[in-house]
Amino acid sequence: MIKIKYEQLSALIDFLTESYQVYAPVKHGKETAFKKISSASEINKSKYNTSLNPKDIFFPQSEVMFTYTKNGIKSPPEQGKPIAVWGLRTCDTKSIRMLDKVFANAYQMPDKEMYKDPYWIARYKNCLLFSFACNEPPSTCFCNWFNSGPYDSSDSDIFVTDTGDEYLLEGISERGIKFLAGYPETSQADQTDLDKIKVLREKAESYMPPVVELSGLKDKLLKIWDDPVWDELSAKCINCGACAYICPTCHCFDMRDEGNEDKGKRVRLWDCCMYQLFTKEASGHNPRELSTYRVRQRVMHKYNYFVENYQQFLCTGCGRCIKVCPVNMDIRQIIQKILTYKEV
């Protein structure tokens, strides 16, 4: 584990930018988001996770799939340097790893070229993820429900602890270890640093809510799939897309053409199962006409369907949806209600 002082951060970022496109949390209007940076001065240091999600780095809200003219189709330019992300939280890193499972291949399919998503892969390939320990998880965090926690370093390439005046960097993955080995700064963390981490970690963990046991959630959901309780659970939802667009793991998308028959582009953009038009067919038939069905779909996808296909929940407990929901739909309450609900 090496340590760098706050003032040495710019040297680290400069070193990174030599071989990576570096993304980090920056101010974005009144909010914070991950954007490409060229120097450490742009970084927004906050105790909390960013208001916008990090999936945008690898799976932008809208991206050009190809352009076309009368003469044919042209793929977008190559990605260039691999991507490094500074300032992720452990939940953010986990969400990126989850999305990789979706985009790198489809679940039960053999490793077949046709199921690979070239746009994701181009960005994700050789990426270096620095995830930060959360010293002060806000009250909306519930990552500990998902066998994780504010100091969960698994899934990181490099795990970073901010001690208040320096960063302690620990290589976790092979790629992370290799990077740190090649970094010129070699000041090693000592016992005092480890003690500091221990104190910070205990404090951080004390802020987390009591763990809710989720092992029965998947099966319970299937059991109540057709139950009238969904009317109650969905009553206040207004079917906007704030939760899905702010969510680091939601990955439904739309594909649209912009242009005319001679010239234009095909873009893909985030879409959301909360919208009425998401499943509406050209004939007018809509399998999810009612808001109830759409809310159910989102909950089922995260805590049942995805688990069926990928053996993990499509949720990291980052709490972003809880913060932004205009009508205070709180996914923690929904989960708890489902777990304790006696079906009709």
């Binding site: 998503d117 998308f253 739309d254 594909m255 879409d271 998401f278 499943t279 509406k280």
Partner: peptide, 17 residues
């Protein structure tokens, strides 16, 4: 169902898992 990507990613044609 409505479909977009055709390769199990975009989420549109999901029925159950």
């Amino acid at each position: 169902r409505r479909m977009k990507c055709g390769i199990g990613k975009c989420g549109r044609c999901g029925i159950g898992s």
